[in-house]
């Protein structure tokens, strides 16, 4: 029973982080139908920055500021780099995939392939069913939730968010009525990057860091975003939590790998069986 509770709780915590990460992908994906395969690597980069902050600057907490900022900047650079091809979905995928390899490879060269660990910034636990449950996990869930709320406010209640939503829906019309769509596109990349970086930093003490963690998580996040609906940030949040909870529970009843296999298979099935989920196609038609 306690295993169940733990699994559930862990699932929710992990779900909020996934939700954060998915929102970041959605901001860019929904914006211009731009698939940023490097999004996972940005998350990885954020996590490694946390490790660097801890190992060399003696402060993990610093990374909660450094990661979003630094990764946000990297995000903008990617957006800039892709300017000539941003309207072509295949070239965008290939280009961002190249960036993924680049980031992953650089991390491998700089820090090696051995998994890195960041210790929990604070040890306190509270008692749950007779065992200690880490407060840090609760902290992660709370921070993610708070940031998601701020994101919601930004997107749904501010003028910036309004313009973002308009650009997402109809970039041509938006441009014609005075909205600087490409600048918003870059800002969106910055925002997406910052969210990825923050997710990485938050999760760092809870997982082991390897250069490959990026692409693996990208597949998961992309699945979530597709199932929730492109650009539908809030639906993806829900899907993310479902996904994480399911994975958490599956891992308890089976083992970790089997749990992942089951979760992936199910998600894949959902995507394959329901064509309407794949509905809202890219905002841009292929140039002929």
């Amino acid at each position: 029973m306690s295993k169940l509770a733990f699994g559930l709780l862990n699932g929710v915590v992990w779900g909020t982080v996934l939700a954060l990460l998915s929102s970041g992908l959605n901001v860019v994906f929904g914006l211009m139908g731009t698939v940023n395969v490097a999004h996972g690597s940005l998350y990885m980069f954020g996590a490694y920055l946390a490790w660097i902050c801890f190992s060399f600057l003696d402060s993990f907490w610093l990374s909660l500021i450094v990661s979003p900022l630094a990764v946000g900047l990297v995000g903008v650079s990617i957006g800039f780099l892709l300017k000539p091809v941003r309207k072509d979905p295949i070239l965008t995928v290939l280009g961002t995939f190249g960036i993924t390899i680049l980031l992953q490879g650089s991390t491998l060269v700089l820090w090696g392939g051995t998994p890195r660990r960041v210790p929990l910034p604070f040890d306190s636990t509270f008692s749950l069913f007779g065992t200690g449950y880490s407060f840090y996990r609760i902290f992660v869930a709370l921070v993610s939730g708070l940031v998601l709320y701020c994101l919601w406010f930004l997107v749904e209640r501010t003028k910036f968010g309004l313009r973002l939503r308009a650009s997402r829906e109809d970039p041509e019309l938006s441009s014609a009525i005075g909205i600087p769509v490409f600048n918003l596109f870059l800002l969106g990349f910055a925002l997406g990057g910052a969210l990825a970086g923050l997710s990485g930093a938050l999760i760092a003490p809870l997982v082991s860091l390897t250069p490959e963690m990026g692409l693996r998580i990208f597949a998961i996040v992309f699945l979530i975003v597709i199932i929730g609906g492109l650009g539908k940030i809030w639906r993806s949040v829900v899907v993310a939590i479902y996904f994480a909870v399911f994975r958490g529970l599956a891992s308890i009843f089976l083992d970790s790998t089997k749990g992942l296999i089951l979760t992936f298979s199910l998600a894949l099935l959902v995507v394959l069986v329901n064509p309407s989920i794949l509905g809202r196609s890219s905002a841009n038609a292929n140039g002929s």
Binding site: S175, I177, G178
Partner: peptide, 8 residues
């Protein structure tokens, strides 16, 4: 000029 500049 970009469309949005012309608009503004």
């Amino acid at each position: 000029l970009e469309p949005h500049t012309r608009a503004t």
